[in-house]
Simulated assay, not measured.
Amino acid sequence: MTENLQNDARRVIEIHGHRGARGILPENTLEGFAYVLGIGVKILELDIQLSSDDVFMATHDLTLAKHGTRDEQGVWLDDDHEVISLTQEHIKRYDVGGLKAGSEYASRFPDQAFMSDVTIPSLEEVINLLKDVGVGDEILNIEIKSEASLSRHQDRVKDVAQKLVKLIKDHDFEDQVLLQSFDWALMEELTKLAPHVQRACLTLQKPDIPDGGKGIKGTIYDGSPWIGSSDYIAANGCIPTMIAKAGIPIWGSFFKDLDQGQLNKAHSLGLKVNAWTVNETEDILAMIKLGVDGIISDYPSRVQRLLLEQGYHWLPEDQR
């Protein structure tokens, strides 16, 4: 097989705990993030959206998830509540500690614990968690949720970027973040404001996967609203070329979209490649064999075990 020389030399593939550890604990919660830190994984992946009163909240869906949100009386939500239209105080009213029995989402994560009195944290609370229990080498992989096809999201791109960079600077956390998004226009703004911060462009080529929500074309095609000012035609549709030209150092790809040719091209351009969201044993092993730089997973402990079995580690020697 074709070996990735960089990974072969250092035998390190980073683990990103996806939404904490969604497979076993409620996603995007302080409880889940604390668990990931506790098992020795240093990179926490989370989603953020800016509330109507300008607070970054850690939640994935554009509307509060009906399969995982209860009101103050313990009743499951049945109406749509768009996150960016709500205040932090409103968002904090809800309990997100469990999945609704019988829902399709619950069937996907049968081992996720059911908890109560778990609220959606702010990004600032997550940063403070790392400051309280970390040793200073942990990383927050922050996915900024933005719907490129909706004007009410695109109208906020500059404001979101400015507020996020300010928050990170105010907390002296610039060396401990990786900022990523499917919305490359947002990534372009972040690059202007904070070119020294680690950044990643996310992509989805196979549409309509669970949690994908990117329509019938995915995100990468000529005329896509997701690729910002990138020129699909000039790059011959080559994703690594577009990302490198945009000055972004990391490519975050849906794992099923990756092949050896694309990975080799990305590495030849100096890009790191993170694969998301990789959960099944055979898929994790395939990504290890392919030679990715990072694996984003709902089951970080599963990835730990498989990396060790294959002679790899998720941390450089000086962090073990």
Rank of each mutant, 00 (worst) to 15 (best):
R19N: 03
A34S: 06
G40K: 01
L44T: 05
L46Q: 07
L46G: 04
L46I: 11
D53I: 11
H67Q: 14
G68T: 06
G68N: 15
D78K: 12
E82D: 09
H90S: 15
Y94R: 08
V96T: 01
V96Q: 03
L99A: 01
A101D: 15
E104G: 13
Y105T: 00
S107D: 13
T119N: 08
I120R: 07
E124Q: 05
E124T: 13
E143G: 00
S151L: 14
R152S: 12
D159Y: 09
Q162I: 10
K166P: 05
E189V: 12
E189P: 08
P195N: 14
P195D: 04
R199G: 04
T203D: 04
I209W: 04
I209P: 00
P210N: 00
G215D: 02
G215T: 00
I216N: 12
G218H: 01
T219C: 10
I220A: 03
Y221Q: 06
G223V: 03
G223E: 11
S224P: 02
D231M: 08
A234L: 13
G237K: 04
C238N: 13
F255P: 00
K256P: 05
L263G: 13
K265H: 13
A266K: 05
H267G: 10
H267K: 09
A286W: 07
G294V: 11
D298P: 02
P300S: 08
P300W: 03
V303C: 09
Q304Y: 07
R305T: 14
L307I: 08
E309V: 11
G311V: 15
G311E: 02
H313K: 11
L315V: 10
